[in-house]
Design a binder for these strands. Sequence first.
DNA 1: CTCCGCCTCAGCCATTTGGCTGATACGGCC
DNA 2: GGCCGTATCAGCCAAATGGCTGAGGCGGAG
Lengths: 208, 208
Amino acid sequence: MTTIRILLVDDHLVVRTGLKALLGTQEDLDVVAEAGSGEEALSAVAASSPDVVIMDLAMGPGMDGIAAIKALRADNPRQPILVFTTYDSDADIVRSVDAGAMGYLLKDAAPEEIFAAVRGAVAGRSHMSAPVASRLFAQLRNPEAVLTPREAELLTLLTQGLSNRELGRSLFISEATVKTHLAHIYAKLGVETRAAAIATAIRREGMR
Amino acid sequence: MTTIRILLVDDHLVVRTGLKALLGTQEDLDVVAEAGSGEEALSAVAASSPDVVIMDLAMGPGMDGIAAIKALRADNPRQPILVFTTYDSDADIVRSVDAGAMGYLLKDAAPEEIFAAVRGAVAGRSHMSAPVASRLFAQLRNPEAVLTPREAELLTLLTQGLSNRELGRSLFISEATVKTHLAHIYAKLGVETRAAAIATAIRREGMR
DNA sequence: CTCCGCCTCAGCCATTTGGCTGATACGGCC
DNA sequence: GGCCGTATCAGCCAAATGGCTGAGGCGGAG
């Protein structure tokens, strides 16, 4: 049995240490490199060409996890990448899978689940924690609730606290159009006011 | 030199493992118990009476970190407690100190800082990570920007997406009063609209 | 006791937002 | 070619929001 060589990417030393300790209990798993940022991750992959990359999404200033995944995939499209993060926001999940992640683990996952996901990733199998999977299924069940690109763009600005006038100016569209988009967004999010939309978006969609 | 007996409280096994590994490198520090929830923390303290409790604030369902601190302090007012968390939100900092925490560490703190904080806590010294301290100082510099209890209460409901009418009903006050409070809140947060207030509150004050 | 901060409420008015209906245009799909 | 989803815009009207001034009660600090 060949050992699986792993790169850990997380901006918290404590998390890296803990993960390394847990993975170290398995004979076939070996952490060969660590990175504290997206930039470091890129050079670490180039230097040690790991079998699997385990990456946190939230990573302080600079390149975030999604961007790092994309960059890694651009260099090597077959590099298996596992997302390992605290939150299961719809937006993060979709963007991660979109960026090319092989799996999506939550930080409260049981060690066995993590081990299985790592081994599976090398074998080409993808894995998601149960709460993550159920969220994805929920999205698939009512695709009409998925925001269009333009709506998502508008929602992002909305959560910055912009008024309709400002939204129009920022996106080079009229206020009328802004109102149309907003009405659609409200319907899809299941809310009736801008305030609730912002609250929902920041909490549920992970727009921070 | 007597060894310092530590209780770790964090709902993530990975974090507990990492922290234990880091603390284990120090001869005088010994993790004698772990807890994955506030409830577990209470019985763990009763069972092993640690010298220091290191506690995460965010802890899944059930009792949160703040409540756990209060409960611990109620049982034993001299129990040193260190908060160890990811975010440095104003609200969390103030509430932690208020609840009786001896220190406030961020999860990206250097190991040496964590060790020093633990040893200091036992000796009766309090410690806060630099970003945390600067936030507290900022609050002290302009006390007029601190929300009154009633305003904070209103802001919490505001971030749930309630309308003025609903806010009034929830707090048993007239809409006129709601508007007065809101005007004060906007001024203190440095925003001009409800939307911006919600965005600011959720992101900066940590109202999730 | 007096002053001040906090909480409460009222009225007025300008602006913003939300709900509605309807319309044009473009691109992909069958 | 026709249909559908997306994006764009208009006009109208009701409701919600924000800015302003003013004011009463109440409790703590000086």
